[in-house]
Design a protein around this nucleic acid. Structure first.
Lengths: 342, 342
DNA sequence: TATTTTTTCTTAACCGCTTCACTTTAATTA
DNA sequence: TAATTAAAGTGAAGCGGTTAAGAAAAAATA
């Protein structure tokens, strides 16, 4: 037997109105907590809604111009733990506020971008949270014109006019470096991430500032280029070792590369942390599993999703938020990959 | 300056109709590839739609009864890699077919279940993919009555009337056990998962069948209860060791427990795989990172999402699918946690 | 008490699309 | 060529809400 066809058992606002002996409009006002209904009637209608388990049709709401109670989340991918945690933050927060999620992955493809526009055009979402690498100015302009609230995650822009939630990479790197210094390390190597990555640059800046703040001279020979991959970290570390420039610690601009670095060191017979201390960045799951467990900088990923959602929801509700740029703090996770020289 | 208010630059079917000099109805027929429009006109209208970059409003479509081109995915959580991969499978597949995703997480909460019903009632989705632990019969009944197509993932039911995609846990466990046997192991311990978990049971069945198929006697002393957690695997293994019942291999019903088991063995001075071989189940990321890398059974997680979506999409398009129950094959991933006794 | 104001509730238009029933046009048949 | 049938296109209702404007009832004012 095939699945049954629509039975149209669905409750509409009309039904509720009839049950309460009032007009659709009155029910609608109750539904949206708008004035113009006596407290007594309001309560009565609310009870009926509750009893019948009635849920207003979002499509109709969207059409009629009111809130759909859906927010759209645009994200490159879901299989990456990083994004998965963002989703979780967004999802939990929006759910708490009775909002549902429209997930939208771009996989970095240009084509997908245009479809996001379709999503907006579909009056299916009340607002947008966007996290993507390929964001172009004209896309931002489009959004602005569309009049739909939106907030970007991890999109460092100079545009003072848009809401963003960004991790404070620089301070995170600063603190991690200071930690190494506090352990007595002065000859610290730095593994750069992908060239184009702004977060890699921010981390490098933090690293530099910490050296300067502690009057340690910066040694350009101890910088190696990587690409954020495990393999990249491995190769970078091998090149580093071949230079025969002395160092007692490595600050890798992400965990994947740090893991690669550990392997490269082990291969050369060097022990972590006895011979070389290592600090990573990101606190990916693997960082706690490898041997030794990696000291690293945790990004407040979940909090980013949460914060972005909170901002968006306030925006949707017409609140005015003075601050547009939110910098979220990182946290240093101390494990056993660093040794004190003192 | 606050974000600009709606400019209503949005294109409607009306606009397209005017541009083409036809009625809305005609455009609608073109949009939905329905007959009643001459080929010439159809092409002309399609071109205009293309040129204008017009995207029909899903909310209106949903309301008017046609497809919304959204599918709903109901899932317990997103931060778990397992679910994240399901999402990815669903997302990629639905995207390919021009469908967008409505994500819906339940976190195992009863309350959330009711809201799923709201989602359906909102005519926002054309179909539902559901993965949840707490599925109740009345919920299934509700879905059936609602007339909306749906398919369950990993929900082993006797109900012949609903579409499901399930992993063949039993065969997976069977193959893994046969692998150990082929290596010469006969005294194989089994670490059970959570009591209530049907997949744990299926894996145990597969394990048993493999023993029987190879005329190896089943030793009840070598079974230990766990709960699918790392800690649980650790404790179970310690209990196992205390029995002083000889064994040369462990088949753990999931990777987390297997990782715990490795730790317990190491603590007792036993080496993996020299002294004890271990096979896990799930192929979580950590399984490839630990020392030694774990031989394990990979679940086709991504494929489950993909398969479920393909079925759902066909259902949405009114196709009739004879088969209702889809069993997906696992794959044995051989790494270095098993040693041959021969 | 009559009048004005305020509160409460209703009527009806509208959002953008689909679709049934109908009209017009073109193609067939007699 | 006239009558019949099929094809192509249109008009308008309706999906389930919101909301502006108006009507009715209650409260406040004169």
């Amino acid at each position: 037997m095939p699945q049954k066809k629509p039975k149209n058992t669905k409750l509409t606002i009309e039904d509720i109105a009839k049950l309460a002996g009032v007009s659709k409009a009155t029910v609608s006002y109750v539904l949206n907590d708008k004035p113009g209904v006596s407290e007594e009637l309001r309560l009565k209608i609310k009870k009926i809604i509750e009893d019948c388990n009635y849920v207003p049709n979002s499509a109709a709401r969207g059409l009629a111009g009111e809130k759909t109670h859906f927010i759209g989340l645009v994200i490159p991918d879901v299989s990456d733990m990083f994004y998965a945690n963002i989703i979780r933050g967004v999802e939990k927060t929006s759910n708490k506020h009775n909002y549902l999620l429209n997930l939208y992955t771009t996989h970095g493809e240009e084509e997908k971008e245009r479809r996001v526009i379709g999503l907006i055009n579909s009056s299916m979402v009340d607002g947008l949270i966007i996290m993507a690498y390929y964001i172009k100015d004209n896309f931002v302009d489009f959004l602005k014109n569309e009049g739909i609230p939106f907030v970007f995650i991890d999109y460092p822009t100079k545009d003072e006019d848009i809401y963003t939630v960004v991790v404070d990479n620089e301070t995170g790197a600063f603190e991690a470096t200071e930690y190494l210094i506090s352990l007595g390390h002065e000859k610290i190597a730095f593994l750069e991430g992908h060239e184009a990555a702004w977060d890699s640059k921010a981390r490098f800046m933090g690293f530099l500032k910490a050296l300067t703040a502690n009057s340690i001279e910066f040694n350009p020979l101890l910088i190696e280029k990587g690409d954020f991959t495990r393999e990249g970290g491995y190769k970078a570390t091998k090149r580093l070792l071949e230079k025969r420039e002395e160092f007692t610690a490595i600050f890798s601009s992400n965990d994947q590369m740090a893991i690669g670095a550990v392997r490269a060191l082990k291969e050369k017979g060097l022990k972590v942390p006895e011979d070389v201390s290592i600090v990573g960045f990101d606190n990916i799951e693997a960082s706690s599993i490898i041997d030794p467990p990696l000291t690293t900088v945790m990004q407040p990923i979940y909090e980013m999703g949460k914060k972005a959602t909170e901002i968006l929801l306030r925006l949707i509700n017409g609140e005015n938020i003075e601050r547009k740029n939110f910098l979220l703090k990182t946290k240093l996770i101390k494990r056993s990959s660093c040794k004190s020289l003192k």
